[in-house]
Design a protein around this nucleic acid. Structure first.
Length: 487
RNA sequence: CGGGGCGUAGCGCAGCCUGGUAGCGCGCCAGCUUUGGGAGCUGGAUGUCGAAGGUUCAAAUCCUUUCGCCCCGACCA
């Protein structure tokens, strides 16, 4: 299973290896190796993250949130203030025990943030006095660290990049609206920007965030049938408000604790992007997130051809750029066109434009869509105005294909035999099944099959509620929930 | 923590059993010929053989210790 350069293992042969190969060949990231569990996000991978950031950041601001930044280090005592929170995160926290050349006394040690509810809670308590200070809507773009045993590039790394929203409200209804608003924002982003369809739902008690009253998530299906939790939005109730004494005076003049929410998406989204669209040739990027949407490969043999082709290619590049297309002219010398084709395909560029003497002569350039088998001639003169539509069509195609894949791999199951059959040998699909609602049954199913409840769907996100019998125990169930193996 | 495996050029590996002073493929550099789907030829550069100690005239190779990494299980999301 070599890290053989240039080779992409077929999906059906070895999916995890395929994933690693696509990340490497797409030049997205590599394992840092010198720092356990961490990765280096390479320029092409980081450019995707920047596009994700830009779109989300705009959406956060449009919904009234403001960016801020809090310290990387959190006093250990802060983490300990919320009982469930510390229980959930303590095992995976890295702690600073030495600084300034000296060992720090235990009471002065710091955790490297695994998430920032605690330190933000501390500052919220200083900033909030009155209902007039609410709602307080803050977002932070940051890195966090969780000491995980098993790491995989983008999907689970020790250090990762994310955004974490933290809001405080005067009552629970308003906080809950915020939780839903953000879940919807994430869902819309996943669907319309990433072309990754998701199911919005509520996490079970055992899967919810440590310290939350309720956790909601968006769940996406990867091409191996497994589920990826792609974003979460938490209703924190007054748990952190009480723990950090975030009190305010309400309109009636009485003191109350604030109602908080927190929510986040991370560089894991890039892993989801890869496992939703890419194929055995390598990365495929939706145009809305592709750092390079179109690449021009000039073709020439003789010097006099080069003199004609290169200026024409540069002119076309400038035209496309002016039309708002993220275009790159690959005029590197010493590489032949064929090699360039392969390279840009592995990097997921949606469309390639081949420009040679013949094309200039005929006024039509040869174009190749990353998702199509054949090449298509397009008039050079109108390429700049035509390309937008082509890219939109590409974006739509990816979403439709992903939706269809998910539909084809979603089942409704009513017997335990069928359940174990669907999930045999490590396979996975999305399965809508009845569940008796108890943590014991959930744990028993997980123990026996490693399959988990991904979420209890919100209205319209799954089958309509209808009573039935639990797939495992036969006890009454009010509605079907989503089962799958998960990343 | 239990089981297994691996550290030799930038990457992937051979050499180790049977000790004799470093090799292959890819990549890189130069030149020429090439260029519409991964180019060919010629020449060239690159190594504390993971580390420390020992045996020996001589250690990548044998012995001891040690560090690191990977896989399976366990644990975790």
């Amino acid at each position: 299973m070599a890290e053989e350069k240039g080779k992409i293992t077929p999906q059906v042969e070895d999916f995890p290896q395929w994933y690693q190969d696509v990340v490497r060949e797409g030049d997205l990231a590599e394992a840092a190796k010198v720092v356990k569990g961490c990765m280096v996000i390479k320029p092409h991978g980081y450019a995707i993250w920047e596009k994700i950031q830009a779109d989300l950041d705009r959406r956060f601001k449009e919904t009234g949130h403001k960016n801020a930044y809090f310290p990387l280090l959190i006093p250990m005592s802060f983490l300990n203030k919320e009982a469930q929170h510390v229980e959930g995160f303590a095992p995976e926290v890295a702690v600073v025990t030495h600084a300034g050349g000296k060992a720090l006394p235990e009471g002065e040690q710091y955790a490297i943030r695994p998430t920032s509810e605690t330190i933000i809670g501390h500052f919220f308590s200083k900033w909030i006095d009155s209902y007039r200070d609410l709602p307080l809507l803050i977002n932070q773009w940051a890195n966090v660290m969780r000491w995980e045993v098993h790491t995989r590039l983008f999907l689970r790394t020790t250090e990762f990049l994310w955004q974490e929203g933290h809001t405080a409200h005067a009552d629970h209804d308003e906080a809950y609206e915020e939780v839903l608003r953000i879940l919807d924002l994430y869902g819309d982003f996943a669907q319309n920007v990433m072309a990754m369809p998701v199911i919005r739902g509520i996490k079970t008690e055992s899967e919810k965030f440590a310290g939350a009253v309720q956790t909601m998530s968006i769940e996406a299906m990867m091409r191996d049938g497994k589920a990826l939790q792609a974003g979460t939005s938490h209703d924190l109730g007054q748990n952190f408000g009480v723990a950090f004494d975030v009190k305010f005076q309400n309109e009636e003049g009485r003191e109350d604790y604030v109602w908080q929410t927190s929510w986040g998406v991370s560089t894991r989204l890039i892993g989801g992007l890869i496992m939703t669209h890419s194929d055995d040739t390598g990365l495929i990027l939706p145009p809305k997130l592709a750092p390079v949407q179109a690449v021009i490969v000039p073709i020439f043999r003789k010097a006099h051809e080069k003199e004609k082709v290169l200026p024409a290619a540069a002119g076309l590049r400038d035209e496309l750029k002016a039309a708002g297309v993220a275009v790159e002219l690959d005029d590197r010398e010493g590489k032949r066109p064929g090699e360039k084709y392969y390279e840009w395909e592995r990097k997921g560029v949606p469309i390639r434009i081949e420009l040679g003497p013949r094309d200039i002569e005929s006024g039509e350039a040869m174009t190749k869509l990353r998702i199509a088998d054949g090449k298509v001639k397009m008039p050079i003169a109108t390429l700049a105005q035509d390309l937008g539509g082509v890219l939109d069509g590409f974006q739509d195609f990816l979403l439709e294909r992903a939706v269809k894949f998910r539909e084809d791999n979603t089942v409704t199951i009513d017997s335990w035999d069928d359940f174990t059959d669907v999930f045999k040998d490590g396979e996975s699909r999305f399965a809508w099944c009845h569940w008796d609602g108890t943590a014991q049954t959930e744990a028993a199913i997980k123990e026996e099959t490693k399959v988990t409840i991904r979420c209890i769907p919100l209205d319209g996100q799954g089958p309509d509620p209808e009573p039935g019998k639990c797939i495992k125990t036969g006890k009454p169930s009010a509605r079907r929930v989503l089962f799958a193996r998960a990343y």
